[in-house]
Design a protein around this nucleic acid. Sequence first.
DNA 1: CACATGACATCCA
DNA 2: GTGGATGCCATGT
Length: 124
Amino acid sequence: MTTDSEATLHCGVNEHYRRIWHTVKLIPAGRVASYGQIADLAGLPGRARMVGKALQAAPKPMQLPWHRVLRSNGQIAFPAGSDTAEEQKGRLQEEEVVVLKNRVRLVEYQWRPDLAELLFGLAF
DNA sequence: CACATGACATCCA
DNA sequence: GTGGATGCCATGT
């Protein structure tokens, strides 16, 4: 194992995924964040797609609050009516987040972390 | 190596 | 509101 697989392992995706997962864990119950927002907070501006990959690759036992991550317009990223979308809607409603037409009102529910929150969360 | 696909975002018509 | 073009980049064929 010489070249890229090792390099990729060292400085690459795994490290990014770790940071993404960590950031998602910081979203408080009852609030939501967008993929792009998570990417930014994780130090990966412009890489919203990687957030999707990271969540997809996230081991289930990790218990990530993936349901709090939405599109930049507040929509659930899965096709309306799909099992996954329904589960996400259910989990959000458990947290008093209103979901209508597969979508959440970001003006009401989007997470807006203050500085102290970020310092505490990301300092690890 | 080239190409397609995707739990996305932004800009513009 | 819709839809297309572009940027982004890991993964799989």
